[in-house]
Design a protein around this nucleic acid. Structure first.
Lengths: 338, 338
DNA sequence: TTGTATGCGTTATCAT
DNA sequence: ATGATAACGCATACAA
């Protein structure tokens, strides 16, 4: 009677099966072993309900089959969806996922990265905001939505194309005079390309456009004031608005309705992300959908792929437009208001 | 030149500081060490950027400072919020969190539990649906929303009180004739007490009530049919509806509006959970709010508390009502329709 | 007070 | 092909 509560070890299995320790290890790892031995070991394993201790494995191999995911939180739908799909993709590869919510805090982000660098996880997938995040050369790392340097792959949606697509759709649905609204990190990240893409699309389609860009701390009141300024005799001078995220679109639509504007009759709104209510019901608004599942798979692929000496610095995945009730699909003339 | 890429170990620190291995260990663990030695060790640690390998630690101590969270997914807002707050509570205790999304699949659930039982994690917090989930005696486990036996603590909202509260609020806001709508797991779990609480509340306040309960696979069309049956001359016979979750309430409200019923003018709706749009904006509907943060803290507390030989089998935490636009706070007469 | 030696569960390198 | 043994990084009981 030694350690009652603890799980059985290889030694226990070896004793039970009457074989040597090494033989058990071989069976467990699928190495060639005599059939009769293999049978006895497998029986013993089943009998004791043995399972390898992956931390002891990790100690030997400096491999833990664990990946850390750094995201701000799981409350916001886009991050929540990312967490879910990355978890799934890792599971398929037999990897576990350590969830690290950083609250977008630079210190937290660095702390988690440092933790991971000490052989505690096999790699990191990070959606971070710390502009000075220090990642050692030898730490497998894949970034989402922000490039962390030439040696670290970054995976993102094709944000530029998404911006273009938004402009095209608004044009296609009859808009003539549109606006781009943005709030959030002024960091140089991939989602910022939505603006450039939108501009590009507007120019290509001959759409008049304006931009209103707020900083992270700013109040939404500024958007309200901005929109008010653009109401003339009860009529909004815009007939289309592209919001940088569905979250912003949601707030903007509320403001518009408060200002007496009908969506989509008076003004059409397109968001970005592809957020659905409760993660599964309808889209919050007409939107440019990010391919979250594909992003997740690509991150995992790039992170765990061995023998890939040169990894792509930036991978952009295709987005798609989806109708969510805030656009006018039927292609009438341009929007008459009032 | 030995292993270039690997992280520094205690041995490296010892060599760098010119002390013995054990001394480094003591410094790291805050055990008494001579001041000059301590200084040298700390300098070396800083210089090498050393950090203990917690898996080697775990191998020694059979302790990994890791807890597994089993939930169906992170996409649905309630689960997402739970994951976030549990992660936070664990972090405060210096624990890491392994996220295990089970997709409500019994096999997955059992697999994760089995994994955890082999000294891979120090404990499990699980929101599961497998009625036959096997949890070994010695595995620290805390359940959410479903009792797993007398020896395993279960943490939940006070669902019964929440049901009562919903009835009281509807009565207070002038309802006379209400309905309870439910869909989902017919498992004997805590949220099922919402129904009993609601009934109890209706009886106490003299409210007429009806129940419509669907099974997990059923189509929402059945709710629509049910509601249609209860429309007489364009008037819904109910003036209040309590939905078992905010998710259901969201769908029901859509159906009601499609049927020409105004919410909350014609019929008031109360949901359950306290879901907000994008995790931070307004409530989806008037609702009974679950104290997610308190649930998370309680789970972690119960799981990690040492020297607590007898743990409470069921902990119910207080809920609160919140206005979300689908009730009529101003206490007019009972709802006139038409 | 500090250093040394052993073992945690596993894998890999040896002899056998 | 199989069995014994060392080593992974750390904590600790024990010797100095």
């Amino acid at each position: 009677m030694k350690k009652e509560s603890s799980a059985p070890t290889m030694k226990d299995v070896a004793r039970e099966a009457g074989v040597a320790l090494g033989t058990v290890s071989k069976v467990v790892n699928g190495l060639p072993v005599g059939d009769s031995y293999r049978q006895r070991v497998e029986d013993a394993i089943k009998k004791l309900n043995y399972q390898v201790n992956s931390y002891a494995q990790g100690l030997k191999a400096s491999k833990t089959y664990t990946v850390a995911l750094l995201i701000p939180n799981t409350q916001m739908p886009f991050f929540a969806s990312l967490a879910y799909h990355i978890n799934l993709a890792l599971l398929r590869r037999k990897y576990r996922m350590l969830l690290c919510c950083t609250d977008s805090d630079s210190a937290q982000e660095q702390e988690y990265v440092t933790m991971a660098q000490q052989n505690k996880v096999d790699g990191i997938i990070g959606l971070t905001y710390n502009p000075n995040l220090i990642i050692e050369e030898n730490t497998p790392y894949v970034a989402i939505d922000r490039s962390m340097g030439p040696k670290i792959p970054c995976v993102a949606s094709d944000n530029f194309a998404g911006g273009q697509l938004a402009a095209e759709k608004l044009a296609e649905f009859g808009c003539r005079n549109v606006a781009f609204l943005r709030i959030g990190s002024s960091l140089n990240n991939e989602p910022n390309k939505r603006k450039a893409g939108f501009e590009n699309g507007c120019l290509a389609r001959g759409l008049q456009y304006e931009m209103k860009i707020l900083n992270d701390g700013d109040s939404f009141d500024e958007f309200e004031a901005y929109l008010k300024e653009h109401i003339d005799n009860g009529n909004l001078t815009f007939d289309g608005i592209f919001c940088v995220t569905d979250g912003l679109a949601y707030s903007i639509i509320k403001i518009l309705r408060r200002l007496g504007q009908r969506v989509p009759e008076d003004v059409q709104v397109i968001g970005f992300d592809g957020i659905r209510y409760f993660g599964e019901k309808d889209y919050v608004c007409s939107t440019i959908v990010q391919p979250v599942s594909e992003i997740a798979k690509m991150c995992v692929e790039l992170l765990l792929q061995e023998n890939m000496p040169i990894k792509p610095p930036l991978v952009c995945l295709p987005v798609a437009y989806a109708y969510g009730g805030t656009t006018r699909e039927t292609q009438t003339a341009n929007g008459q208001k009032g």
